[in-house]
Structures are given as structure tokens and as C-alpha cells.
Computed example of a mutant assay.
Amino acid sequence: MTDTTNELVMTRVFDAPRELVWRAFTDPDQFAAWFGPVGWSVPRETVDFDVRVGGHQRFTMVNDDDPTKTSPADGTFAEIVENELLVGYEEVKGVPGLEDGTRMTLRLEFHDEPGGKTRLELRQGPFPADWRSGAEQGWGSSFTKLDALLAR
């Protein structure tokens, strides 16, 4: 059996106010403009958000070089405090290394930092130990794209 006790924990400071960083995660147009690691994109027409407790976050990442490679997501919002906290989960099916029905949780905390910046604290998991590095690289790459969006 695969060890799924691992959790990714990351902190990133963005040079933008908390409300703008929050909007980048909750507004479908903005989300589609930055989400996904370099080499992947999220077509706007695949994004469907209902940002409320019990609501959903659905989208599909598409590989830029081979559009037949896709990664759909269908999450449910469990906790929301506007401009402060987003918690959601997805029950995975058909993912190698994870038992069907495993609940993968994503927790995002948004904190004010001096100078109008925002500190984002991210926790995601559980997932197989060998996924952690890839997840961390994927988020880091996505956050580089988010930095560019927030600078506009």
C-alpha cells in the first residue's frame, strides 16, 4: 500500500494586496490566466466556480504541446472566509498510487504582509511520497505565472 501521509506545505509572498491574490484564486477569468505549471494552461471555457461552502471548483488543465493530455479537477469548497481562507477537497478516482475515494485537501491562507504584500500559506495532501516534489514544482511554476498576472 502507498504511504499517503505526506502533505505539501508551502509559503509564498506575493507583491500584491490580499484582495487581489484572493481574486486570482476565485475569479474564473483570472484563474484561467495563471493556473497550471509552465507548459500547461487552463482554457477559460473549462472553468466553473461556485465560491461558497458546498460550492464547486471545476476546471481542466491542458498540456500546451499535446492537447490530448488533460488533467481535470472537480473540487468542493469546505471552508471560506473571504480574502482570508479557502479550503476545498477532491475525492480522487483512477489516480495511480491513490485509493479511489481518497480525499485530497487544499488549504490556502491569505495573510497581510508589510508593504501591501500577501503571504500565502498552502497545505495540500495527502498524496504518495513520490508526488511531493512534483507538486511543489508545479505550484512554484504556477506561482511564477501568478506573479506576472499580479504585476499587471
Rank of each mutant, 00 (worst) to 15 (best):
D3E: 08
D3H: 09
D3K: 07
D3S: 08
L8R: 01
V9Q: 10
T11A: 09
T11Y: 07
R12C: 01
F14W: 01
F14Y: 03
F14L: 02
A16D: 06
P17N: 13
P17D: 15
L20H: 13
V21G: 03
A24Q: 09
F25D: 04
T26S: 15
D27S: 15
D29Q: 15
D29K: 15
D29I: 12
A33H: 00
W34Y: 08
W34R: 04
F35M: 15
P37K: 10
G39E: 10
W40M: 14
W40N: 01
S41C: 10
V42G: 05
P43K: 13
P43W: 13
P43Y: 13
E45G: 11
E45W: 08
V47A: 14
F49G: 11
D50Q: 12
V53L: 03
V53A: 03
G54M: 03
H56Q: 06
H56R: 12
F59S: 12
T60W: 01
N63S: 11
D64T: 12
D66Y: 01
T68P: 05
K69H: 07
K69D: 07
K69A: 08
S71Q: 10
P72G: 09
D74A: 14
D74K: 10
G75K: 10
T76K: 14
F77Y: 15
E79L: 05
E79T: 09
E79Y: 00
N83M: 08
L85A: 05
L85I: 09
V87I: 08
Y89L: 13
E91I: 05
E91P: 06
V92M: 14
P96E: 03
G101Y: 07
G101F: 08
G101R: 04
T102E: 02
T102D: 02
T102F: 01
R103I: 12
M104S: 13
T105R: 14
T105E: 15
R107W: 09
F110H: 04
F110Y: 11
F110D: 02
F110Q: 04
E113D: 11
P114M: 12
P114V: 13
G115W: 12
G115R: 06
K117Q: 14
K117Y: 01
T118F: 00
T118K: 00
T118R: 00
T118M: 01
T118D: 00
R119H: 05
R119C: 11
L120H: 00
R123I: 08
P128M: 02
D130V: 11
W131Q: 12
W131G: 04
R132E: 13
S133D: 14
G134H: 01
G134Y: 01
Q137R: 09
Q137M: 11
G138Y: 05
W139N: 01
S141E: 03
T144K: 05
T144F: 03
K145F: 06
D147I: 06
D147E: 11
A148S: 10
